[in-house]
Design a protein around this nucleic acid. Structure first.
Lengths: 210, 210
DNA sequence: AACTATCGCAACGACATGTTGCGTTAAGGA
DNA sequence: TCCTTAACGCAACATGTCGTTGCGATAGTT
């Protein structure tokens, strides 16, 4: 057609993706904003528009990198550093459990922890996102497992007790109370741990299965 | 104007709302469908259109009665009969707790229970709806309170134990496991109750507050 | 049978998600 | 430094759900 300029075919100068400078800033800002938005608004109220605004980035740029809201949430979730225990164990079960739970509560109150907890709720879609959140959540349980198992070896916890269930007896009330805005202080944690540890000790009465 | 018929003003024959027949059917069908939809799809995926279809009713009819989705959910929630304990207590704490928890688990697995549990999740909007759900949920706890308090009087539970917290140690793991699809059978319930009751008994070691 | 509350249907506006075309900016190899 | 083009910003669009409104049809109630 008239006016159509045909450029000579030449080998492209660059090939790879651009990872530095602007692109990097956009990705980092978007993911950080996504984590904050998720922690602040929760899963249902989470809006891409708001993430874009907080990141100082156009909405389109987000969609070009993460095709759906779920993908963005997934990426944001992966940014969340899982709860890691760095404290050395003292060998005192109740003391170690208290330490662990106090640090976990602090983490759960942070943006990182809120983000994970938002996605641990059921009826989050798609299901893969829930699965990912659960996987990350379960990873946080590793030090708890270790504590209970070594306590079993020392004979402080009855061998017949399901370790996962025992940990749930401490953590499930904590998460429920945090969600509801009920107090979760040292006294509460101490009570949870005392009841669980005493109740799971060997020699306590157990109801026979019928 | 031409063609405009002016009717003689006459006193209206009826005044009150119509509660029988069609209207009644529409209301009942809509609320029943809403409960089912909430139990099936959960809060996030809940759609008015789907409720209307299942109820065999036009979408508009639902909106005319309940102006917002939240109002419909609220009405549906009020339809849910709260968990009521009809069983006589035997005075055996563990046995009564097991009875109670088994019935509660059965109820939580019903459409009624799922409906309530869907709305007990945080980040459900508006907040009033969450508050209503929590109120109804707390009402279900009445028999549990009674059990723990009378056990305290008999000296089976230490007086210093927070009854609400102790109940949470049994119920929170149950709800978490139900949400995640983990097993909640008699063995699990028995363990929860054994650990909680033994651990909360008088004479067990308590960590001193620092 | 007459009156009218309530229904069904259709059309509309508002809002969030997700897509696409195009012009502009800047990363990075020459 | 200069050129190519990956990635951006902007605007416009398509879709789906919520929620509203007008109007004619249906069916309680008197």
């Amino acid at each position: 057609m008239a006016g159509t300029k045909k450029k000579l075919a030449r080998a492209p100068v660059t090939r790879g993706v651009r990872v530095g400078g602007r692109s990097k800033r956009v990705v980092e800002a978007a993911l950080r904003a996504a984590v904050n938005e998720l922690a602040r608004s929760g899963y249902t109220a989470f809006q891409i528009e708001e993430v874009a605004r907080e990141a100082g980035v156009n909405r389109t740029s987000i969609y070009r990198r993460w095709p759906t809201k779920a993908k963005l949430l997934e990426a944001a979730l992966r940014e969340v550093s899982p709860f890691h225990n760095t404290q050395a164990m003292t060998g005192n079960l109740r003391r170690d459990l208290l330490d662990l739970s106090q640090r976990l509560v602090r983490w759960m109150r942070s943006a990182q922890g809120k983000t994970l907890m938002s996605l641990l709720t059921r009826d989050v879609r798609p299901p893969e996102l829930v699965r990912l959140a659960r996987t990350l959540g379960d990873e946080s349980l590793a030090p708890w497992w270790a504590l209970v198992e070594s306590a079993k070896l020392r004979g402080e916890i009855a061998r017949g007790i399901d370790a996962r269930l025992l940990i749930q007896m401490i953590l499930a009330p904590v998460t429920v109370r945090l969600e509801r805005g009920e107090r979760v202080n040292t006294k509460v944690l101490t009570t949870l741990i005392d009841v669980a540890v005493s109740g799971a000790a060997p020699g306590q009465r157990r109801t026979r299965a019928r």
